[in-house]
Structures are given as C-alpha cells and as structure tokens.
C-alpha cells in the first residue's frame, strides 16, 4: 500500500472524539485610535511610519529619509515615486535584485494590533525584491487599517494569490545572546507610509 493510503487508513482506523469546531465570534480587541496604535506598535518592532495626505505627497514624504535620498537603486511599485538606477520591470532573474537599495511597494491593509501590513504577490512582480532590498517602504491606505488579525483575514480573499504575506517591522534577530539586531537577512529598515485622510475612527495626526 502506498504511504498516503497507509497514513489515511491508520487515521480512519483510530477514531478520536470530536468536541466540535468552534465559531470565531469574538468579541475581539478594538482600539479607539487604530492609527496611533499601528504607529506605536510599528515603532516598538523597529519600524517607522510616515503619513501622506495624498499619494502625490509620497515623494516628498520619502525625501525626509536620508538613506532614501542617497539611494542609487530604487524599485518603486507605487507610481508617484520614481524608480532609480534602471528599468527594474525588465528583470527576469530575481537574483539581479540583490543590488537594490530600496523597494517601495503597495500594502493592501494594515493591522493596528501588531503593525502588520499585508502584501499580495501580483502587486510585486518579483517577491524577492521585498526581502533583498536593503530598505523597504510599504505604502498603505489609511482607510485600510483594521483592528486585529481576525478582520485582516476576513478581508483577504483566501488562497487567491500564490504568495502573500504580512510584514511587521524590519528583518530582525536576537540569536546572539538575545541582543536585538535589526537587519538579519532582509531589509535593514521598514518605513510604512500611511496615505489619505480618512483613517477609521481616528484623528489625523501627522
């Protein structure tokens, strides 16, 4: 018998009592000021946040970052921000992205409880850019902020993209004597730019 049927038959042979699959009703945590919560948690996990009232303000907002101003190779997937260095859309081998200083990518939604930003594959042609760039900028519409992961998963269409991920802060490690080091393998910094003026249940506080 092949392994699959062997395993399944063993599982079927040994019945196990079932206590039922629970409904996930909550109530779950909510925040009076999701934007402030998001920014506070992002800072705590080593990231930074900027706000831009309009998409057109993005280049100006990013120009506040010295490392961005100095960047020689930038791949921007968010139109108002210009790519720098080459036409990155012609890249066919993701290994070529290793030289990126910055990647600017759109985030679909942000989660206030943990500063996670959801990014789905089709918005980023080579997902390697998100991890290989020395610095990462995620542009997230302020109105997309949700309170918890429950709302986040409810809004993401399940299994529709081959790859999607939450990013919360820059790459980090504490594997050497529990000392926190930012920039383990992936980006050394993460900047989340929250755009728009229509943040849910929140004052706009630039």
């Amino acid at each position: 018998m092949d392994s699959k049927h062997d395993i399944l038959n063993t599982l079927r042979r040994d019945p196990v009592p079932d206590t039922g699959l629970p409904a996930l009703d909550g109530p779950w945590l909510t925040f009076e000021q999701p934007l402030d919560q998001f920014r506070e948690v992002l800072a705590a996990v080593g990231g930074q946040s900027l706000v831009a009232a309009h998409e057109g303000d993005l280049p100006h907002a990013l120009a506040q970052l010295p490392s961005f101003r100095a960047a020689q190779r930038v791949w921007s997937l968010v139109p108002p921000v210009a790519s720098v260095g080459r036409d990155w859309t012609t890249v066919t081998d993701p290994h070529e992205l290793e030289v990126l200083d910055y990647c600017v990518a759109p985030g679909a939604l942000g989660v206030a409880e943990n500063a996670a930003v959801w990014i789905a594959h089709p918005t980023v042609p080579h997902r390697a850019a998100l991890f290989l760039a020395q610095h990462l900028v995620l542009v997230v519409p302020g109105r997309s902020l949700v309170h918890t992961m429950h709302e986040a998963y409810a809004r993401i269409p399940p299994g529709q993209t081959s790859f999607g991920l939450f990013i919360s802060g820059p790459s980090k490690t504490a594997d050497i004597e529990q000392a926190l080091v930012i920039g383990a393998h992936g980006p050394r910094s993460l900047t989340v730019v929250l755009t728009g003026t229509d943040f849910p249940a929140s004052r706009f506080s630039p």
């Binding site: 996930l24 992961m149 429950h150 081959s162 790859f163 999607g164 990013i167 919360s168 802060g169 790459s171």
Partner: peptide, 25 residues
Amino acid sequence: LAIFTRLLARNATGQPVTAYTSHFH
C-alpha cells in the same frame, strides 16, 4: 489563522506577530 498568528509570536517571544508571516498557495 487569525487565532494562531495572534498567539504564536506573543507566546514565543512577546512580539505582537513575527516580522514575516508568509502564505504560500
């Protein structure tokens, strides 16, 4: 996934979530 991603990193290291939570389909 919401239940488990809320629990995992908080309980493991006290982080609100891991830096990367990647979904492969």
